[in-house]
Design a protein around this nucleic acid. Structure first.
Length: 260
DNA sequence: AGTACCACCTGACGGC
DNA sequence: TGCCGTCAGGTGGTAC
């Protein structure tokens, strides 16, 4: 489930559970998830503590006292699992950090589309990976300036991580539903005040989702997300939710509410 | 510069 | 019950 709100919840979880504890050792499958090997990561961080956490878009960073950062990206599935005193971690745990006190932090990633990496500098890492400004960090002015020169559909613009990072398939559906735009609306057709409104919707949706722990069951029933299923009733107009395909991704809309 | 499509993985679900 | 196709909240590469 990991889009910006989910990753922010994971960050808070890791911050509260796994910082200020001395790292004893790390282990991980030597498969495609480990961008840097567990051995390399262990050599850099064993004996140190995590003292900070950071998030940019869907990327999560845990910084150690010796200025290293373990980087996490969850792909389409996964979360963290913290366990006390070596109690059992969930299935599909791909990377484990063990602390001196015996506690464990597991990176759970069923579909192996995520990754674990190591970097000295967060800024440098983001530049290399072409991760754009975070959707909740960028100013309204910068957001509008970026979109001014953008072509193509608003949906693909919102989901382009190099433009603005953190918004994925389902939260872009929600944002566009609340803003009233069809996902295929062309960006050049949006006025400056349209873009201002869009910026506000992005903040509204992402911030409230974080407040509700990114738990779909706790989101307002007036939102699209709890009704994001073909044939369900639109919570606003009671029309039928339709599923369409945009750049290969399933996309849910209310055709009558999203006709701007 | 955008977009469409495939690939990477695993597991759940519906149809037969 | 079992097999098969399809789909899932992400990203990267490639071809157009």
């Amino acid at each position: 489930m990991p889009e910006l709100p989910d990753v922010e919840i994971f960050r808070r979880y890791a911050e509260s559970k796994a910082t200020r504890k001395t790292i004893k050792k790390v282990s991980g499958d030597e498969d495609q998830v480990m961008e840097a090997s567990a051995r390399t990561i262990g050599r850099s961080i064993n004996g140190h503590q995590f003292i900070s956490t950071a998030r940019k878009g869907k990327y999560l960073f845990m910084g150690t006292g010796n200025n290293k950062n373990v980087v996490f990206h969850f792909g389409m599935t996964g979360n963290f699992a913290y366990r006390e005193k070596k109690s059992e971690l969930p299935a599909n745990t791909r990377f484990t950090i063990e602390f001196e006190n015996g506690d464990l932090l597991g990176f759970v990633n069923q579909r192996k589309l995520g990754m674990v990496d190591l970097t000295d500098g967060i800024e440098e890492f983001c530049r290399k990976e072409e991760i754009g400004p975070d959707a909740l960090e960028i100013s309204q002015k910068d957001f509008i300036d970026l979109l001014k020169t953008r072509e193509g559909s608003i949906k693909s613009a919102l989901m382009d991580q190099s433009l603005v990072s953190g918004i994925g398939n389902i939260y872009s559906d929600e944002i566009l539903f609340q803003a009233g735009w069809h996902p295929n609306k062309q960006v050049p057709d949006l006025s400056e005040s349209d873009l201002e409104e869009l910026y506000q919707k992005i903040h509204h949706v992402l911030e409230l989702a974080i407040k509700r722990n990114a738990d779909p069951a706790k989101l307002p029933y007036t939102w699209l997300l709890p009704n994001r299923e073909e044939g369900k009733k639109c919570p606003r107009c009671k029309g039928k939710i339709e599923k369409i395909k945009i750049s290969g991704r399933g996309c849910y809309i209310c055709p009558s509410c999203q006709n701007k």
